[in-house]
């Protein structure tokens, strides 16, 4: 008898660890769902529909192309708006960081813009433009641009001066300086900015879709409101939440991969 299998306690088993992590991911949702389900037993269906009902609608949306295309349209609008705001914000941010005049002119302007509510942009967009998609893109960019720009300026300003001087001491070209120093230094904060703005954009997009769009989660929500269909409203809302969670997860995976170099404190 040479083959001795070491005895293991159950929680040494890796499968057990995975199960435990899954449990803690699921726990808060289970809690909310339970609370809702209990409420649905006491209130009429049009106020608190049963979750079974809601999930049937969710399933319906996910499996019916004409409905699911609305989800995709909204997702594309969020990503398109964020991408536009990011590109513009990067240009403005670099300008503010590099030129004093740009800082003096743009920073107060963007701060002013930041005070304008999303609904005002919706009204402006309807008055100024015709195309529905362009209106939505305009609203998305206008509402997320100031924050994006300020976050990029903040990242550039907090760049380590000592490290930057070290790189400069080797007399790099502008391009080399940007790729070896600026980009990796600001990337973590840029990803964080994406995460923050993703939340904002997903809330703004449904308002933006009220400008006359004939598809999208915002449009669908409006329909449910007119029908007084709570299960539908919930099902559509969940689509948006799913999308945000999915995209957050993608960004987190990117972070984990790209920022492996960071020290991890065992104390957390």
């Amino acid at each position: 008898m040479t083959d001795v299998t070491p005895s293991r306690r159950p929680y040494d088993n890796p499968a057990f660890g995975v199960a435990r992590r899954l449990f803690w991911v699921a726990a808060p949702f289970v809690l909310i769902a339970t609370a809702w389900q209990i409420a649905s037993a006491f209130f009429p269906d049009f106020l608190f529909p049963s979750l079974i009902h809601v999930f049937a609608r969710v399933f319906d949306i996910l499996t019916t192309w004409s409905l699911f295309s609305s989800v995709l349209a909204t997702a594309m609008r969020i990503l398109g708006g964020l991408a536009g705001a990011f590109v513009l914000g990067a240009v403005l941010g670099l300008a503010i960081f590099s030129f004093k005049t740009a800082d003096r002119l743009l920073t107060p302007t963007l701060t002013f813009f930041q005070g304008i509510p999303a609904l005002s942009w919706v009204v402006f967009a309807i008055i100024w433009f015709h195309g529905v998609e362009f209106r939505i893109l305009f609203i998305m960019v206008a509402t997320t641009l100031p924050a994006f720009t300020f976050q990029i300026v903040g990242a550039l300003r907090s760049m380590d001066k000592d490290l930057s001087e070290m790189v400069m001491s080797f007399r790099p070209s502008r391009r080399k300086y940007f790729s070896a120093m600026v980009l990796p230094a600001v990337l973590p904060e840029v990803v964080t900015a994406w995460k923050v703005n993703l939340g904002n954009a997903s809330r703004v997009v449904v308002v933006a879709e009220l400008v006359g769009s004939s598809g999208g989660v915002g449009f669908q929500l409006l329909q449910q409101q007119q029908l007084f269909d709570m299960a539908g409203a919930l099902a559509w809302t969940l689509q948006l939440v799913f999308f945000v969670l999915l995209f957050q997860w993608v960004l987190s995976q990117f972070e984990r991969m790209a920022f492996r170099y960071r020290a991890v404190s065992e104390r957390g």
């Binding site: 000592d162 790189v167 001491s169 120093m181």
Partner: peptide, 19 residues
């Protein structure tokens, strides 16, 4: 820029790029 490749510096702290 004339000094590219002609001088090198060891700083007081290591100044390594963490990434």
């Amino acid at each position: 820029n004339w000094y590219r490749g002609k001088m090198a510096i060891v700083f007081q702290t290591d100044r390594l790029l963490p990434w």
